[in-house]
């Protein structure tokens, strides 16, 4: 009953919103000065499969309390930067690490939905692991030298901005009595989106 309904003309109205969320992800790089910094900054922020788990990580850090969020501020961007450098120097593991990213959406969503308080080393280990994996898969073309440095800094900055702003924002929110519930509900949404993404990827649907 829900099948085979054509996307109608007015649905095009939604396209700008969708584009707004996605456009620059595929804008390719030109080897000139600060371009790589902004390209690096925007690539993860405009790719849903990166930005969704990063948001989850930022929120999860807040759920872990102030210490977790604080250390995450340092650990995650550093891990992302190292991941990007590894991705440029030792390419070839993208396909495998895509699964790491998919797992990160599901796992982080689940942890957020259940609001689990992890031991500090476990949380930071997870953050570093996903940071490396996401950094690695953010490499979009062969860059070297200054360009690579700028691009890496851009991607790491994106990670830093997200975990700093969201971590602090969520920390304020979870102190309200409705706040934790809202954050957990968001976690369940992320988990659900991750499960759908994982399902389509695993079962070989196109576009994954």
């Amino acid at each position: 009953m829900l099948r085979n309904r054509p996307i109608r003309r007015w649905h095009a109205a939604l396209v700008p919103i969708a584009l707004l969320a996605s456009t620059p992800a595929h804008a390719h790089l030109v080897s000139t000065r600060f371009g790589e910094f902004y390209a690096g900054l925007l690539h993860p922020l405009t790719t849903l499969s990166h930005v969704v788990p990063w948001v989850a990580l930022g929120l999860l850090a807040a759920v872990q309390g102030i210490r977790g969020a604080r250390w995450n501020l340092l650990a995650f961007p550093l891990a992302v930067a190292i991941g990007v450098l590894l991705g440029s120097w030792l390419p070839g593991f993208d396909a495998g690490l895509q699964w790491g990213n998919i797992a990160s959406i599901v796992l982080l969503g689940a942890l957020l939905a259940t609001a689990v308080a992890l031991p500090m080393p476990a949380f930071l280990g997870l953050s570093v692991l996903f940071g490396l994996s996401h950094g690695y898969t953010n490499v979009v073309s062969e860059l070297e030298g200054r360009a690579l440095l700028l691009y890496t800094t851009g991607v790491a900055c994106a990670g830093y901005l997200l975990v700093a702003l969201l971590g602090a924002g969520a920390l304020v929110v979870v102190r309200q009595n409705w706040g934790l519930v809202a954050v957990r509900a968001l976690g369940s949404w992320i988990l659900a989106a991750g499960v759908i993404f994982a399902g389509f990827s695993l079962l070989g649907q196109p576009g994954a």
């Binding site: 996605s22 849903l48 969704v52 659900a192 989106a193 991750g194 759908i196 389509f200 990827s201 576009g207």
Partner: peptide, 10 residues
């Protein structure tokens, strides 16, 4: 894109 579909759906 499957991820976009999932996000929109949720």
């Amino acid at each position: 894109n499957a991820m976009a579909f999932g996000v929109g759906f949720v």
